[in-house]
Nucleic acid binder design. Structure first.
Lengths: 329, 329
DNA sequence: GCTATAAATGAAAGCGCTTTCATCATAGGC
DNA sequence: GCCTATGATGAAAGCGCTTTCATTTATAGC
């Protein structure tokens, strides 16, 4: 691989000048620029990004930390973030935190040691304090899907409470009054927020909260399976089920089929997230849309603006979910 | 951030010695090592990976190029690859090629310019010649899910032909004789291989190929939708449908529900890939398992062995798919 | 044509590390 | 004890680039 030095020799200019035409960082006479570019072409020169990073103290890399790299949800997030950065010549380093505080912290350190210019974090377990400390340490980062008061200006979130409200409201509007709720782990911020929204909707329709119609799942398919079995075993009376995400809703629908409960006639089901497979269920899942791509894009733009000083369209911090009525409720 | 220089001063040794204890690259007296480690701890020192890369000509990063970052399939692949590398302190840079030759080439160049130590490529559109050239250029890389004769030693593949055979064989064994086939784009290697396997199974059961029962889809849900509509509109007679991937199978099942065709009683459906949502369909999808994680792991190990000279368990180049019988066929 | 100012360019000092080579200390072998 | 073979360590030269600062060249004003 040719180096900048060889280019400068061939073009008959100094290293500095070559660097200037590469980075367009200072005016260079048109004829000089021409010569340099010709030399670069001739040598098939491509700047060594590592050397650039070391010298400029910018790595042009952004670290992304999500809970799981697999799964429908994060895939779309990554996809969007990558394409945003790719378009401006930056690259994305990914890591998984697996919803574990220790792992999350370790992953963040890992990304930091990689000299990422910024981090985009989807972290669930690490404490608010830790994030505050991280901000103090000077590492630029954005947090997705979590509101942390101490670093509120770097949080991009979905109004989960509204989402929970929307889901339950939809059912209430259609006359359901006995609505069971399958939550995610309540220590997760989004899970508890969604549940709050559920309660608000109930209240609005003067339906009292019934603890026997609450089940704390795990945001996985099995959570939905166990939930429905639990309610059925307890002989709970309910005509509708709201699940705090689509995976659990799928699990619940599977069980409904198995026990011969017709959806939505005997049991209406609504999910949350609108992941890509949510319309593969039968009947197609009514759910609340999580605008994950828009959020990913916004996170990328935050970085573009605050770290790379690029002009970007207006930033938005809180996104509104939307109900997607399909066939299951 | 502290530098190696400060550590060496505090520990009262030279830069070289500090480097040695960091990299464990030459013997250092235990007492010296102790001092250095203490100094590192005291300063909260972490090596600057960019400087390390520049000096050692190793970036400790691996570029991964897949068609789409979203989607069930690639997510699991990435997930596995990342965790393999993460465990040994290497990081993963991701890019998407979107099945487009130009984009794939550009992405590869992009990753190369990032000084990746190796690339793991899931490329569909770039030519065999291009890959040969890439190999000649000295960039280490592995190709996943595609056999390229010129660089056969760097290909890790699934026996797609066998997979296609298995799917159709399963149906034939259960008495089906009129089996429609929904393929992926035939220019994609895996799609054509799977179809070959289908034909082999038919032949084995002395069933003649019927071109009217073939439909070339797009590996997307809509492909399955269009396929089934196509067959139905053409009043084709068939009792089973094999789809070259699960997305298309889902689409087909959805249509079956819509038109009141009972699965599997009136129409047996088998998919391919066994992606994570394949059991969310109703009935649960019978499919062919694509051991994507194992393949990801193997790709990572190939790199570990050939690029980082690490000892790894035996490498395997061709994986055998397996039929996963569920409820749809 | 001459100076004052701005535009182009070059020289050289790093960026934080690895690695070669030389040096010094230590331990056996006789 | 002396010599040699190792084991430990340090000095210093890069890795390929960016960036400051100084210098040279062009432009304008009179």
């Amino acid at each position: 691989m040719a180096t900048i030095y060889e280019v400068s020799k061939l073009a008959g200019v100094s290293l500095a000048t070559v660097s200037r035409v590469i980075n367009n960082t200072a005016p260079v006479r048109a004829s000089t620029k021409e010569k340099v570019e010709a030399a670069m072409r001739e040598l098939g020169y491509r700047p060594n990004s590592v050397a650039q990073s070391l010298a400029s103290n910018r790595s042009n890399s952004i670290g992304i930390l999500v809970s799981e790299l697999g799964g429908p949800f994060y895939g779309e997030l990554l996809s969007r973030i990558e394409s945003e950065f790719r378009a401006v010549g930056k690259h994305v380093i990914v890591a998984a935190g697996h919803s574990d505080a220790e792992l999350e912290r370790e992953s963040i350190e890992f990304l930091r040691s990689r000299n990422c210019d910024a981090l985009i974090l989807h972290v669930e377990s690490v404490s608010d304090d830790y994030l505050r400390g991280l901000a103090d340490s000077g590492t630029p980062f954005v947090v997705i899907n979590r509101h942390v008061a101490a670093v509120a200006d770097r949080c991009i979130t979905l109004d989960n409470e509204l989402g929970g409200y929307l889901a339950t409201h939809h059912l209430l509007e259609r006359g359901h009054r006995r609505i069971a709720y399958v939550s995610g782990p309540m220590w997760k911020h989004d899970a508890s927020e969604r549940y709050k929204g559920h309660l608000r909707a109930l209240k609005e329709f003067s339906v009292a909260e019934d603890k026997s119609l609450f089940f704390e799942g795990d945001f996985q398919e099995t959570g939905g399976v166990r939930a429905l079995h639990h309610f059925l075993d307890a002989k709970a009376k309910f005509t509708a089920l709201v699940c705090a995400n689509d995976e659990m809703a799928s699990g619940a629908i599977t069980v409904a089929h198995e026990v011969g409960l017709e959806v939505p006639a005997e049991l209406a089901v609504v999910g949350f997230d609108n992941v890509n497979f949510s319309h593969y269920t039968y009947p197609k899942l009514t759910t609340v849309d999580y605008p994950i791509e828009a959020i990913g894009q916004m996170a990328a733009r935050w970085v573009l603006k605050h770290v790379y000083q690029q002009p970007v369209p207006e930033l938005k911090a809180v996104f509104q979910p939307q109900l997607i009525p399909r066939d299951s409720a």
